[in-house]
Design a protein around this nucleic acid. Structure first.
Length: 114
DNA sequence: GAGGTGACTGCGA
DNA sequence: CTCGCAGCCACCT
């Protein structure tokens, strides 16, 4: 159910992440104006299973591009599997070319024009 | 009403 | 260079 909670805001942004791209918790937090509270983004992702439609949490990684949340998936290899399915390269539990595949919400949102 | 938690980040040594 | 600590704020019990 859509609540006006911070969670849904994170979900909204996470769902906007295009396939083959990844973003960081801090990027979403910053987009929401909570750069200092990147934890909340991760915390929101923790409840992604309670949100509907489901959120592509596998596209959200930490600042280093490491699959920090892979441990929270049904299966640890699932997150990597998903990213690879998106056309990304994952090595050592982190996104290769993360810098290239990085997707900044505040940046792309601006490109989408308001 | 109050306390605890948490899938992060940045800075200091 | 790597390791450790403190801050942050909303949701849940």
């Amino acid at each position: 159910m859509e609540r006006d909670t911070f969670f849904d805001k994170v979900y909204a942004v996470a769902r906007k992440i295009p396939a083959g791209r990844v973003t960081s918790y801090g990027a979403i937090a910053q987009y929401l104006g909570m750069k200092g509270s990147s934890r909340m983004v991760g915390y929101a992702m923790n409840a992604c299973g309670t949100a509907y439609p489901p959120v592509p949490a596998h596209r959200v990684v930490n600042r280093n591009g490491m699959l920090s949340g892979k441990h929270h998936f049904p299966t640890e290899n699932l997150m990597q599997q998903m990213l690879e399915s998106e056309g990304l390269c994952v090595e050592d539990d982190k996104v290769a070319d993360f810098r290239r595949a990085f997707w900044d919400p505040s940046l792309e949102m601006e490109a989408l024009e308001e």
